[in-house]
Design a protein around this nucleic acid. Structure first.
Lengths: 331, 331
DNA sequence: CTGAAAGCGCTTACAG
DNA sequence: CTGAAAGCGCTTACAG
């Protein structure tokens, strides 16, 4: 193994000089620089990253925890997070929690063990048993997309309330007043805020959301599918649905297809997220776009800021917008 | 900072004992075990992973390089790779090459710098300028999905030839003989093998593939779209297309839609990959499924094997299967 | 099992 | 800039 002392020896300079030069903490005069560069080339020296990490106290690694990186929205976040981390000299390690609190706690432990410098956390449930304490204690976490209530950490959320308003506006504009809201579990910030904005905008036009048409279950295709079937067989029947996520919307689409209900002719549909395949659906899905890349990018930036001692109670909002395609029809 | 020597001191045992106990290299008698466990709990000791890594010479990290982890097929690979790595005590770092050879070489360098123990490489081009040498030199790489010719490394590929045969069989069974092949660049193993199997099966039924209907460009939606438009305006017109990837198939679908060509009524279509949204398309896409999870899982296993000194010229094939949905019609 | 210590290969004060 | 060295917190022979 050729180490930094070998470079120092053959270049005739000090270990400290070589180290500082390689880390850009010093500017050498040309001759010294050349001697060191030559020695590095001659010896084929490669700095040992692990040694640097131990000595400097940084793992040069950031973590990203999602339920499963395979989901398109999370994959897009990971891609942007990797780019941003890499631009700042960090590598990105990904962790799948499979929506298990136990696994989440285990992943959070990686911070304490110095396996990663900090962690971007994306949870998908309200029952957080101990998560909040761990997060606050570590001080090296940022929360994105969903909240862990009670935790002290910077947050990057979508502008959910505005998204709810946009969905309501679109449906109202097309003449709908009998509207269902199908979404994930009550208590999640994405559900509550979107619903609040939705109701708020509806009420501005004097439209009341029927309690029986608020269906909160979980963020899954299956839930969308079964809920649609239920809703269309028992009254009151809506003329439009606002789905809290595109995968729920897909479930609704499938359920409608098998029930012989035409979208958008018999039922209008607005989703949330704007996953990549939304425009390929039949009909192409009208939806509220969240900028997944912004979550990844801003998540990493917020994490880097808090690691440098920045404030932990920032809350940033990622903008949303209405993408009109073909799943909403005039009533 | 509480270190292992503090645990040794308060538990009244030796540093070596604590270390070996924590790493499971030793079984202690109950009293000793309890004293150490108590000390760890009392002090809130957390082993410093970076120190362990330096001393033991393993970064406990595996890398996965794709052009962009955001693509569904790669995201699925990453998910399975993370699960498999995690089960073996490794973390998974992801790297996006953006299809740049320069970036690929930089990522490969992480192995030399001991930043990662090994790397799973997924490239997407034939021009490999220097990649093969780097890979062979490192000896800590496995190639998945696509080849880097000339490199010495274990490989995990799809059974592309068989996939080509399955596609041909499906189309022949539906009476098609004027068939186009639209795929990525010539020279890529996925293209050549799929084409070879396709042609082979066609010829078994006495069907000749028209040279003018072999269109190799790149693995993109745009290429599928423009190629379809070209092909349908100039003769000879095919009655079916075998697309080398689902994203190309999506491009063909879009192109057909805007040209007023009905799929499958006017044109049958078979894809390759089976990305998650294939069944949501209109019509649902008939395709050759590659098991993305198998790539991730087997890639990690092959990497772990080669890191333990295993042979570097294994080549493993991931099975493929025909998924019949709605994009192929009887002629 | 214990105890004392070398070693992993860096970074970083420190005195010059 | 140099030189010599402590320190990061582990693992791992080694002698007992």
């Amino acid at each position: 193994m050729v180490g930094i002392r070998d470079v120092a020896k053959t270049s005739g300079s000090a270990v400290a000089t070589v180290s500082r030069y390689l880390n850009g903490q010093i500017t050498l005069r040309p001759e010294t620089k050349k001697r060191i560069d030559d020695a590095i080339a001659e010896l084929g020296y490669q700095p040992n990253v692990m040694a640097r990490r131990l000595a400097s106290g940084s793992s040069e690694t950031l973590g990203l925890m999602t339920t499963d990186i395979e989901y398109p929205f999370f994959a897009a976040i990971a891609s942007a997070a990797e780019a941003e981390a890499s631009a700042s000299g960090y590598q990105l390690a990904v962790f799948n929690s499979r929506n298990s609190t136990e696994k989440e706690l285990e992943i959070l432990h990686a911070v304490e063990r110095r396996q990663i410098d900090g962690l971007i956390v994306l949870t998908n449930h309200t029952d957080t048993g101990g998560l909040a304490e761990q997060i606050t204690k570590s001080g090296k976490v940022v929360l994105i997309d969903e909240d862990v209530s009670g935790a002290t950490a910077p947050r990057v959320f979508a502008d959910n309330r505005h998204g709810g308003r946009l969905a309501a506006e679109c449906l109202l504009r097309h003449g709908h007043t009998e509207i269902a809201f199908v979404s994930g579990p009550r208590g999640m910030i994405s559900v509550e805020e979107r619903l609040a904005g939705f109701v708020e905008r509806l009420e501005e036009d004097g439209v009341e959301l029927n309690e029986a048409l608020i269906r909160c279950g979980d963020y899954s295709e299956a839930f969308g599918s079964t809920t649609l079937t239920e809703m269309m067989s028992a009254g009151p029947r809506p003329t439009a649905v606002f789905a809290g996520a595109d995968n729920i919307a897909v479930g609704i689409l499938k359920g409608a297809r098998s029930a012989g209900i035409g979208v958008p002719d018999d039922l209008s549909l607005v989703g949330f997220d704007d996953v990549s395949y939304g425009e390929l659906l039949d009909p192409p899905l009208t939806t509220i776009r969240q900028d997944a890349h912004a979550f990844g990018r801003e998540g990493v930036r917020a994490l880097l800021r808090v690691l440098e001692g920045g404030s932990a109670d920032e809350i940033e909002r990622v903008r949303v917008e209405l993408i009109e395609r073909g799943s909403v029809a005039q009533l």
